[in-house]
């Protein structure tokens, strides 16, 4: 028994190393004092963070990605919640079809969704103008996460609560706002955080559909790495990792136990 437990513990440690080592390497490399992206770092310094903060291209990209993610999340929250309500309460026989269709962007390789959108938007004559294709792609990629999380919190709830509110004099809209919304808030929060992170990090969709002009952070980083090999890229990644971590921890603290 002792041996089995020890082996299990060892296995656990190995899994964690496998998952976390690359992140640790990136973070450590970002504090590199040298001129090249190397590991172990040659001396400790924050100079690459300063370089990054002074680099308008990256700063613009971060803001651009954050705004894109926020807008995509907002639209996904609205559409995803409506879809979840329909799926749980009214879809009946079509429920499974509805679910599969909504989850398709999650099931298909991202690149397929991206190419399909590319064809579609050229076919209808919009092409990659005005970032409409890029935005649509981000909404599609984030929608399943909102849908899944809201569906889960709806399924644990009694539909009679809404009917009870109606019988007490609340209109459909008031019943949704006062009763349903507070009950699915944990699902909305978790789904929203997921959606934001997915949009912030997604590469394939952004790469194919970005068009001309400003680009999201992952694309900018990719472009940068093709011609440069400085620790600045690691600094950008570290900031991005911290960003994601803070969002996840905050969501878990706020809603983790309830969801």
């Amino acid at each position: 028994m002792r041996l089995a437990e020890a082996l299990l513990a060892l296995f656990r440690v190995l899994v964690y190393i496998f998952l976390l080592a690359p992140i640790a390497v990136v973070v450590l490399a970002s504090f590199n004092a040298g001129n090249f992206l190397t590991f172990p770092p040659q001396g400790l310094s924050l100079r690459w963070f300063v370089t990054f903060l002074q680099n308008d291209v990256f700063m613009d990209a971060i803001v651009y990605s954050a705004v894109l993610a926020a807008l995509a999340t907002a639209v996904s929250l609205v559409i995803g919640t409506m879809a979840a309500l329909y799926y749980v309460r009214h879809a009946g026989k079509e429920a499974e079809t509805v679910r599969v269709l909504l989850l398709l962007p999650l099931i298909l390789p991202e690149i397929l969704t991206a190419i399909a959108l590319l064809f579609f938007f050229y076919e209808i004559g919009i092409g990659l103008e005005h970032k409409i294709a890029l935005f649509t792609g981000h909404v599609l990629m984030t929608l399943p996460f909102v849908f899944l999380n809201v569906t889960t919190s709806l399924q644990g709830r009694d539909e009679a609560c809404e009917l009870a509110a109606r019988s007490l004099g609340a209109s459909r809209m008031t019943a949704f706002r006062r009763i349903t919304l507070p009950l699915i808030a944990p699902g909305l929060a978790t789904g929203g955080v997921f959606a934001f992170i997915i949009s912030f990090d997604t590469f394939g969709i952004s790469f194919i559909l970005k068009g001309t002009g400003s680009a999201p952070l992952p694309i900018q980083l990719y472009d940068y790495l093709r011609f440069n090999f400085t620790p600045e890229a690691a600094a950008v990644s570290t900031v991005s990792i911290v960003f994601t971590l803070v969002a996840v921890v905050a969501a878990d603290r706020l809603f983790g136990r309830k969801a």
């Binding site: 009694d158 009679a160 609560c161 009917l163 009870a164 019988s167 007490l168 609340a170 009950l183």
Partner: peptide
């Protein structure tokens, strides 16, 4: 008439109390 306009009080089998 819509349910909210009917002036009824209803008790459900599941009670349907507002948990929050």
């Amino acid at each position: 008439k819509l349910p909210e306009k009917r002036d009824i009080g209803m008790v459900f089998q599941s009670y349907a109390l507002f948990p929050h």
